[in-house]
Design a protein around this nucleic acid. Structure first.
Lengths: 266, 266
DNA sequence: CGAGGGTTTGAAGTGCATCAAATAGTGTGG
DNA sequence: CCACACTATTTGATGCACTTCAAACCCTCG
């Protein structure tokens, strides 16, 4: 699989290098996440002082499944893929996260030697804030609001995973793609024509939705015919959102609208 | 689907009726869950005073997807199925929980009018403790240990869901069954012959593993040949656990052993 | 311009779902 | 205690969705 190893440390996704950034901007990154919603500015600034900023190139591996967990991460900007790799070389994508989202909270909760339960890889150039476990456990003890924030985001993420399990169990490939597109629609555009932009490449999208790239391609083509759609590379023009909803949400549990889940899970 | 409605309220899964039980036993139920691990006896007794005990018959619906959430639930004994029902009548089973496990914590976390994101049904005669939201929010404010307990169980559950997503994405039917059987093995019996007892009926098991009953039946038969297995109703005799592990865990992410997840998720 | 990855298209194979029906198991009332 | 009804489970036959393998195409970037 990797006979192409070379001396360029970026090639096979080596650990990211650190960079120093103004602490104020770290606070701004953390503020993006509801996790820190209940924390006062001063406290957050003190936390920021202890954080590290990591700059990742496309393909860089931030942390590996099974590694000891040193911190919790918040995405400043970029796209990070969380996945589980198997012995035989395949992988299951759990999530693809972006600006303001937090991951790796499990590091705070498992007592003896917490390890990461997934591999995190930069899908494209990204900036990530690493919050050391020690700083966070202190924060947790002193500020109950932090635990509450964590609870809320974990509950939200839980619901997202539940929805994904439902999708995998009950929907076919075109419907899963449709569901994803719907969550991409801005909240105010729930009817009529909408133009969307696929946030990352189709191969990754396919993996995230649990299908092969070939299947994704064909399913997208099928959507084009079944609901009105135009596709130009990563640009998708939707003739009528309502039509897509009818198509994709048919086999859904209607009472828990996906709209509520569109917002960042952390 | 239900032209057979009759006057027996149990028939179509009406709400369970309440029963009064000694408060001490409620404390015992709560103590089973790690959620309350850090809470002192006195506090727990006070909580127990405000709880209701529900007795459910097989098929009774405890709460329905979309209902307003009034409380969090702890299973005294029995089996409770959590599932999402779709408009067209099919369902996706999210989890099947048993003694000591807690569910519905989301009720505490979503601010405006929390609703349940799944339907909970008794798979067989069960006893469940209902903890009112009001009592728990009070508890959360005064005892930070409670929030910590919640966080831990939610993290654990998260890992379970991640594993399930991985299983659905990467394993075929016989392997998924094999994985389930392995998690059924007692921790001390990791090699040699083991006799297991399927905890509930095969139709539900199939649904939990994301396959049709027919597929489950055939996959189980296939396992019988591929690894050494004897099946008598719900009794499964495994010639060699290690053999099954080789078979089922081949496509797994090895570094996060499923053994760690066998323990109750809350 | 050429190399390499992303994307599409075609052809063939496979695992699972579906439909149908037989069999086993379980609880009921007579 | 047995016959009946009903459900769970198994088995067979068939179809379909998705995967796999292969090859062409496209696009970007050095």
């Amino acid at each position: 699989m990797n006979s192409t190893l070379d001396f360029d440390q970026a090639k096979e996704g080596q650990p990211a290098y650190a960079a120093t950034l103004p602490k104020g901007s770290v606070v701004a990154v953390l503020r993006q996440s509801p996790v820190f919603q209940l924390i006062e500015d001063g406290v957050l600034l003190e936390l920021a002082r202890q954080c590290q900023v990591l700059v990742l190139k496309r393909g860089d591996v931030l942390l590996t499944h099974g590694d000891k967990a040193h911190g919790v991460y918040a995405i400043g900007h970029g796209w990070i893929k969380l996945a589980r790799d198997t012995q035989d070389g395949s992988e299951a994508v759990l999530d693809v996260l972006s600006d303001g989202q937090v991951f790796g909270e499990q590091a705070l909760l498992t007592e003896h030697g917490p390890t990461h339960s997934f591999t995190a890889t930069a899908v494209e150039e990204s900036r990530v804030v690493m919050m050391p476990v020690a700083a966070l456990t202190a924060l947790m003890k002193q500020h109950p609001g932090f635990a509450m924030g964590l609870l809320k985001t974990m509950a939200r993420r839980q619901s997202l995973r539940d929805m994904e399990l439902e999708n995998r169990a009950l929907k076919n490939a075109p419907q899963r793609i449709g569901c994803f597109l719907l969550r991409l629609c801005p909240p105010e555009q729930q009817r009529g024509e909408v133009v969307l932009h696929l946030p990352y490449d189709k191969t990754l999208l396919a993996a995230q939705l649990g299908m092969q790239p070939e299947t994704f391609s064909r399913a997208l083509a099928r959507l084009k015919g079944d609901v009105g759609m135009d596709i130009q590379g990563s640009a998708v023009r939707l003739a009528d959102v309502a039509e897509l909803r009818r198509y994709a949400c048919g086999g859904c549990s209607g009472t828990y609208p996906c709209e509520d889940l569109r917002a960042a899970a952390g």
